[in-house]
Design a binder for these strands. Structure first.
Length: 608
DNA sequence: GTAGGGTTAG
C-alpha cells in the first residue's frame, strides 16, 4: 500500500495546485473533518509541496491544535503521532512566529516527548529567525547529549545557526570538532562552512576550505561553485576565477543552462576587472534573468563605467524586461555619478507609478542622486518623506548638503541623527568634516573630529585628517595643519598632502609647497595633480622659470596631464567638453553663449 | 516531513 505521504503528489489532490484553491480548501469543512493522521499528513505534504504562505499555515495550525485536543490522537496508528504533530507545527511557525515555535519545543520537553532529527532543524531555524542564540546553544547541548548531532541535518542546521549569527569561530569549531567524529559531513556541510567564510569576509579561508573539500574527494555541485566564485570576486583574484571557470567548462556537470553559475561568473569577471570576459559570458548565456542584468549593471557601475551600465539598462528596457529594486538602485547610482538628472527623475516617477516603497536602499539612492545632480531640495524632500531612515540615509543627506556648501544644515541633520539614536559611521564624519571645511567652521570641525573617537569610538582615517588639514589650510592656519600631520598615528597619504598643497596655493606658501610636493610625488608618482598645482603656485608668484622647470620634469617622468572634462546631458544625449575643445558642430554658438554667461556673471559681482 | 546559491548604497 502506498504511504499516505505519497498521496499529495499522487492522484487525489492533483487537481488542487494553486494558492487560491488551497485557501478555499482551508475554508472548507474537509480539514475540520480530517479525523486521521493519515489525512493530516496528506495536507502536510501538500502544504510543504505548494509552499503555502504563512497566514494560511497559521489557519492550519489553529485547526490542528483543536484536532489534537480531541480524542482522535489516541486512535492513531503512527509510532509517535504527538512528536510528529509538534514537528509539523514547529516547522509551520519557525518563520512566521519563531518564538511560538520555541515555546512549543519547550512544551514538548516538559511533556516528556522526545524531539527527533526532524524537530531540531526546525527549532534551530526558529532560533535564528528570532535571534535566540542562547536557545540555539541549549539545542546544541541537547543534540550532543542525545547524539542527535550525528544526524547530518541537525549538524548542518546548527552550523547554519552559528553562521547566521556571525559566529565564524563557532562554525569552524563545530565543523572540525574531533570529539564527535560520528557527525557526518556532506556537501551541504562544506557549503555552509565555505559560505560562512565568504559572508564574514574571509574569502581566503573559503577558497582553502574548498580545496580541502576537493582533497576529501567530494565533487562540487553548482551551488558550491557559485559560492566559490563569489569568494574569487571578493578576493579580486582573476587567475583563480579563470581556473574555476575552466574547471566548470571542462567538467560541465550539466551546468551549462545554470543561470546562477553564469551570474556568478559575470560578477566575478567584473569584480576582478575583466569587463570583456563578463560581457562574453553575459552575451552567450542561454537563459538570462533579472539578476544577470543586475550583475552586469552593478558590476559596470562598480568599475566606474556609468554610461556603459546605463546602456545595458536601456537594452533591458528595449526588451521590455521589468527592472527590480537592485536594478533601479544601480541606475540611480550611475545617474548620480554622471549627473544624468533626467533619467534619475524618470526612475523616481517609475517608483511612484508602480507604488514601490522608497524606504531603504532605493530612498537612499534617490537622495544621493538628487544631491549629486544639484537638486538638494528634492534630495531633502525624499529624505523627509522616508518613513525609515538609517545611517546611510543620514550620511547621503549630510554629504549632499556638504557638497552644496550648506554646512549648518548638514550639522543640524547630524544632530538630529544622534537625537533619533542612529550612530554615525566613518563616512558620516567625512560629510560632517567636509561641510565644516567648506564653510570655514574651524571650531565645529575640531569638536566633531575629537568626538569621533571620544564619543563614537571611531578612529579617524586619513580621509578625516585630510578634511582637517583642508579645514585648517583654508582658514590660513598652516601651523595647525602641520602640527596635526605630525601628530598623525597613520602615515599621511596623498589625501592629506594634497589638502596641504591646496592650502599652500590659497595662501601662496611657496617654500612649504615645495616640501609638500616632494611628499606628494612619492605617494602618487603617476598623478598629475601635484605638478599642476605647484606650477600654478609658481606662476601666481611670477616665478616662471621654476614653473617651466617643473613642466619639463613632468615630461621627463612621463606624467601626463589629464585634461579637465565636463559632461552635459541634453535630452538623453551626452556631450563631453575638454579645455579648448572645438570639435562640436555648434562650437561657435556654444562659445558665444559662454561669453555671455561670463559677462553676466561679472556684472553680478563674481570674480572669474 | 528536514539543511546549502548569485546582484544594491553614503
Amino acid at each position: 500500500m502506498a504511504s499516505p505521504l505519497t498521496v499529495a503528489s499522487g492522484s487525489r489532490y492533483n487537481d488542487i495546485n494553486t494558492f487560491q484553491q488551497l485557501s478555499l480548501l482551508h475554508q472548507s469543512p474537509r480539514l475540520e473533518s480530517s479525523k486521521s493522521v493519515g489525512q493530516l499528513k496528506q495536507f502536510h505534504a501538500f502544504i510543504i509541496k505548494t509552499g503555502s504562505p504563512q497566514h494560511q499555515t497559521q489557519i492550519l495550525y489553529d485547526k490542528i491544535i483543536s484536532l489534537s485536543r480531541g480524542n482522535e490522537i489516541e486512535n492513531l496508528s503512527l509510532q509517535n503521532p504527538q512528536v510528529y504533530l509538534y514537528n509539523f507545527i514547529i516547522q509551520c511557525l519557525s518563520n512566521a512566529n519563531p518564538l511560538e515555535a520555541i515555546a512549543l519545543y519547550r512544551e514538548m520537553l516538559i511533556k516528556g516527548l522526545l524531539p527527533n532529527t526532524y524537530t531540531l532543524p526546525y527549532v534551530l531555524k526558529a532560533c535564528w529567525q528570532s535571534q535566540s542564540l542562547r536557545v540555539g546553544q541549549q539545542v546544541h547541548a541537547y543534540s550532543m547529549k542525545t547524539a542527535l548531532l550525528s544526524n547530518v541535518y541537525v549538524f548542518n542546521t546548527l552550523m547554519r545557526l552559528y553562521a547566521v549569527c556571525g559566529l565564524i569561530k563557532a562554525v569552524h569549531k563545530l565543523f572540525h570538532f574531533r570529539q564527535h567524529p560520528q557527525a557526518q559531513r556532506d556537501l551541504v556541510s562544506w557549503t555552509t562552512l565555505i559560505q560562512a567564510y565568504v559572508k564574514m569576509d574571509y574569502p581566503t579561508e573559503a577558497i582553502l576550505s574548498f580545496f580541502d573539500m576537493c582533497q576529501a574527494n567530494l565533487r562540487p555541485d553548482g551551488m558550491i561553485l557559485v559560492i566559490v566564485l563569489s569568494a574569487c570576486s571578493k578576493l579580486g583574484d582573476l587567475s583563480l576565477g579563470i581556473k574555476i571557470h575552466r574547471y566548470i567548462t571542462d567538467n560541465h556537470f550539466n551546468l551549462s543552462p545554470d543561470v546562477f553559475i553564469h551570474n556568478a561568473l559575470i560578477d566575478m569577471y567584473l569584480k576582478c576587472g575583466n569587463i570583456p570576459s563578463a560581457r562574453k559570458v553575459f552575451d552567450e548565456m542561454p537563459v538570462k534573468n533579472v539578476v544577470s542584468w543586475n550583475s552586469m549593471i552593478a558590476g559596470l557601475t562598480h568599475r566606474g563605467q556609468f554610461k556603459e551600465a546605463l546602456d545595458i539598462f536601456r537594452r533591458m528596457q528595449g526588451l521590455g524586461l521589468k527592472p527590480d529594486d537592485f536594478t533601479l538602485v544601480c541606475v540611480l547610482n550611475s545617474c548620480a555619478n554622471i549627473g544624468w538628472l533626467e533619467l534619475g527623475k524618470w526612475v523616481h516617477t517609475y517608483l511612484d507609478k508602480n507604488h514601490i516603497n522608497t524606504d531603504g536602499f532605493i530612498g537612499n539612492a534617490l537622495v544621493d542622486m538628487y544631491a549629486k545632480c544639484g537638486r538638494i531640495d528634492q534630495a531633502f524632500g525624499v529624505f523627509r518623506s522616508m518613513k525609515c531612515r538609517d545611517v546611510y540615509s543620514y550620511t547621503a543627506m549630510i554629504v549632499g548638503l556638504a557638497i552644496h556648501g550648506k554646512a549648518w544644515k548638514a550639522l543640524d541633520i547630524f544632530s538630529e541623527m544622534s537625537q533619533v539614536g542612529i550612530e554615525p559611521d566613518e563616512v558620516t564624519f567625512v560629510g560632517v568634516l567636509s561641510a565644516c571645511s567648506h564653510a570655514g567652521l574651524v571650531e565645529e570641525g575640531c569638536k566633531h573630529f575629537l568626538d569621533m573617537s571620544r564619543v563614537y569610538n571611531l578612529q579617524p582615517q586619513t580621509e578625516h585628517y585630510g578634511c582637517m588639514v583642508d579645514l585648517f589650510g583654508r582658514a590660513g592656519l598652516i601651523r595647525e595643519a602641520l602640527d596635526l600631520i605630525k601628530s598623525m598615528p597613520l602615515v599621511p597619504d596623498a589625501f592629506v598632502w594634497g589638502a596641504l598643497l591646496g592650502a599652500c596655493k590659497i595662501h601662496a606658501k611657496v617654500e612649504l609647497a615645495e616640501i609638500v610636493m616632494e611628499n606628494l610625488v612619492r605617494f602618487e608618482p603617476e598623478g598629475d595633480g601635484a605638478y599642476i598645482l605647484m606650477t600654478n603656485i609658481y606662476s601666481s608668484k611670477n616665478r616662471w622659470k621654476e614653473a617651466l622647470k617643473l613642466r619639463k620634469k613632468m615630461k621627463e617622468r612621463k606624467v601626463k596631464k589629464t585634461p579637465g572634462c565636463s559632461l552635459v546631458e541634453v535630452y538623453g544625449e551626452f556631450y563631453e567638453f575638454r579645455k579648448g575643445d572645438k570639435s562640436h558642430p555648434k562650437t561657435l554658438e556654444i562659445y558665444k553663449l559662454l561669453d555671455e554667461i561670463m559677462h553676466q556673471s561679472k556684472n553680478h559681482g563674481y570674480i572669474l
